[in-house]
Computed example of a mutant assay.
Amino acid sequence: MTLSPAARIALRIVMALGLAVVYVPLLVVLVNSVNADKAFGWPPSGFTGRWWSQALDNEGARRAVLTSVKAGLGATAAALVLGTMAAFAVARHRFFGREAVSLVVVLPIALPGIVTGIALSNAFQVVLKPLGIGLGLFTVIVGHATFCVVTIYNNVLARLRRTGTSLEEASADLGADTFQTFWYVTLPGLRSAMLAGALLSFALSFDEIIVTTFTAGPGAETLPIWIFGNLFRPNQAPVVNVLAAVLIVLSVVPIWIAQRLSAGARTVP
């Protein structure tokens, strides 16, 4: 399609406005994390790093960050195993209900978070409570894994469909068994897709709040939950801005790395 110069200019203006709506508020949060004015007047009267020092000294904030990291790593590990296995089943085998399995795996990320949270909370109360297992870090990891598995599944499935089975068949023809073929042929081709999916999963888990609200117990306060709980406390406002900035960085960096890995994989012949 050929666009006129005026249309191209208009599209660029609309794109710039759309990006500004998304990223200018994030930039304001980053600037306020070093704003010397505790009331966050604009423009900043000066810049300081004392709010970052206060955040580092805040025991509740440190504990929340550690809980989020644990939950993100746990959910990513679970999703990595389950998503990869599901992708292999759908891509490499033909069976009744294969498309239904694919839909069931992808569906959780399309459901509203509040629906998923309520459903998981009820399930945990019915299944785990009689066993003496209450809400806590384990239930948060399970809740996050339900939607993190989608990113692993989609990345691995796309890579399996793109690479085909010719290399695996050649490996088998040369005498390699199933494990050797997987370890030396299949896994190297999937490594970047799995890593990209894992980074996206960690980013999704790290900043998730709705499902966490329904699945976290008193001792499993994640960073987003801590920020929300302290958002309207004036004395905690500087620390909240610092942790919001940390949340932005820890969410953006994995997504950027995953995008670079995916782009690099597409350029490989």
Score class of each variant (00 low, 15 high):
G217M: 01
Y23P: 08
I109W: 05
P234I: 08
V246M: 13
G41F: 03
F124Q: 01
G113P: 06
S192L: 09
I255G: 05
R161T: 14
T186F: 00
E208W: 01
S192N: 10
S166G: 04
A123I: 08
T139V: 11
V34Q: 00
W256M: 13
V105Q: 01
L167G: 03
T163C: 09
F182C: 12
P218W: 03
P224T: 10
T48P: 05
A64I: 11
A198N: 09
A119N: 04
V14T: 08
V24G: 08
S201G: 13
N230W: 02
E208Q: 13
L223V: 10
G197F: 10
F124W: 01
E169G: 00
A245Y: 03
A196V: 08
P188C: 10
T76N: 14
A193G: 03
F179E: 07
G41C: 01
L135A: 02
R191T: 14
C148G: 14
A10E: 09
C148M: 09
A110Q: 15
A123S: 12
T213V: 10
F124G: 01
S102F: 05
V29H: 02
W52T: 07
G41S: 11
F179P: 04
T67S: 12
G113R: 02
V246R: 06
A170W: 00
R62D: 04
T76A: 15
V106Q: 13
G219R: 08
F182P: 00
M194Q: 04
K70W: 07
I209A: 05
D177I: 07
G117M: 09
D207N: 11
W42C: 08
I9G: 05
V29R: 09
L19A: 14
V90H: 01
T163S: 14
V81W: 13
V142K: 02
A89K: 01
R266C: 05
L111G: 03
V127Q: 07
L131A: 14
A158N: 13
Y23R: 09
A39R: 13
Q180D: 15
T178M: 10
L187W: 11
T222H: 07
A75K: 09
Y23F: 10
A71Y: 03
A172F: 07
R63D: 15
Q125E: 09
M85V: 15
L231S: 11
G264Q: 15
S45V: 11
C148Y: 06
A216W: 01
A237S: 11
P224R: 04
A170E: 06
N154S: 14
V28C: 07
